[in-house]
């Protein structure tokens, strides 16, 4: 098995709509190294032929060929790659099957939606660090919001047999990228009871509490509200639990605050605009506290920037200054 990260070509196995605007893209990648939850890939959101630089004859049916050049700028294309956290991965011999969940927000993700089974995708990775697993008897609390749910799914698959509860939130049911099991009991709008009603988590024996802002499914309110109620009701504090979170920044900040107030360790997978993903462009910076102000970098200053791509994307909640 290849251990080295690099550039790979994935072949699309499936590109399935999960809910409004969200798609699950499954790709087979020969020689892709082993990965872990928290890591991400940089996807080329345009044809891999763009990277061949081979001079091509225009395909034209008539014998008289048109005199056109530089056709590439006619349609807008995503120049840079786009980072996606892994939603899952399995390996079978030399071939890895990796999953990402993407939401259509621009020209890059719009291109991804058009992909069909058998199409090729340029992949660079795997990149970034990973979540640290809970220690013996520690309850793992997975908190995902919107497009932050995918790394929680991958983490769930790694924590089979451990004590795990998932809290997931979306604006509304239409935007919840999870599958409600057909015969599931519908949770009440004020219920924080963990249920085995979400297929993706139930498959790993993990119960979930779902929140929607408008109450169209599960708890009515933010995922941070259901989480807070749960932590308080069951008096969860300190090292008895570990919270993992990924989602909108305002949500992750709140989750980190809830954890800090209760001395619960918290691991946050941040999202940042990124060009390279490899620590060279320095664009995905995030402010963190320095434990010792006299230490490098920037002695005399009590904070510094870290890069989401190589220092993260997973950071300890208590060190993040955002």
């Amino acid at each position: 098995m290849n251990q080295r990260r690099g550039q790979f070509t994935g072949v699309v196995c499936a590109n399935i709509p999960l809910c409004r605007e969200h798609f699950k893209l499954v790709m087979e990648v020969r020689g892709f190294p082993p990965t872990k939850a928290g890591q991400f890939v940089q996807l080329l959101c345009r044809s891999t032929r763009d990277l061949d630089y081979v001079e091509r004859e225009l395909e034209w049916p008539s014998p008289q060929r048109p005199e056109v050049e530089n056709v590439d700028l006619i349609a807008p294309t995503a120049l840079l790659r786009r980072p996606f956290s892994l939603a899952g991965a399995t390996t079978d011999g030399e071939t890895a099957t990796i999953e990402v969940i993407h939401r259509v927000v621009g020209v890059g993700t719009d291109w991804l939606v058009q992909l069909r089974t058998g199409d090729e995708v340029g992949i660079l990775g795997p990149l970034g660090n990973t979540f640290s697993h809970p220690v013996e008897n520690q309850i793992a609390i997975l908190v995902g919001g919107g497009v932050g749910i995918p790394p929680m799914l991958y983490l769930a698959s790694e924590l089979v047999g451990k004590k795990v509860i998932a809290f997931c939130g979306a604006t509304t049911r239409d935007l919840l990228s999870l599958t409600v099991t057909a015969d599931a009991r519908t949770p009440g709008i004020d219920s924080i009871e963990p249920l085995y009603n979400i297929q993706e988590f139930a498959a790993h024996g993990i119960p979930a509490v779902i929140s929607t802002d408008d109450g169209s499914y599960g708890f009515r309110g933010f995922v941070t509200q259901s989480l807070q109620e749960y932590l308080d009701r069951f008096r969860i504090r300190g090292e008895m639990a570990v919270i993992y979170t990924c989602g909108p920044e305002v949500m992750m900040k709140r989750v980190a605050d809830l954890a800090r107030a209760r001395q619960i360790p918290c691991q946050v997978a941040v999202e940042r605009a990124m060009a390279c993903g490899m620590g060279t462009c320095q664009s995905c910076c995030i402010r963190v506290k320095k434990p010792d102000a006299s230490a490098v970098p920037l002695p005399g200053q009590d904070w510094c920037y870290r890069l989401a791509c190589t220092d993260g994307p997973v950071f300890a909640g208590e060190e993040l200054l955002w």
Binding site: P76, A78, A273, Q282, S283, C284, L298
Partner: peptide
Amino acid sequence: ERPGNPPARIVETRGGM
């Protein structure tokens, strides 16, 4: 040593960065 500018530090534009 320089910490650099606050984010957002990059944005993609048509055919450019």
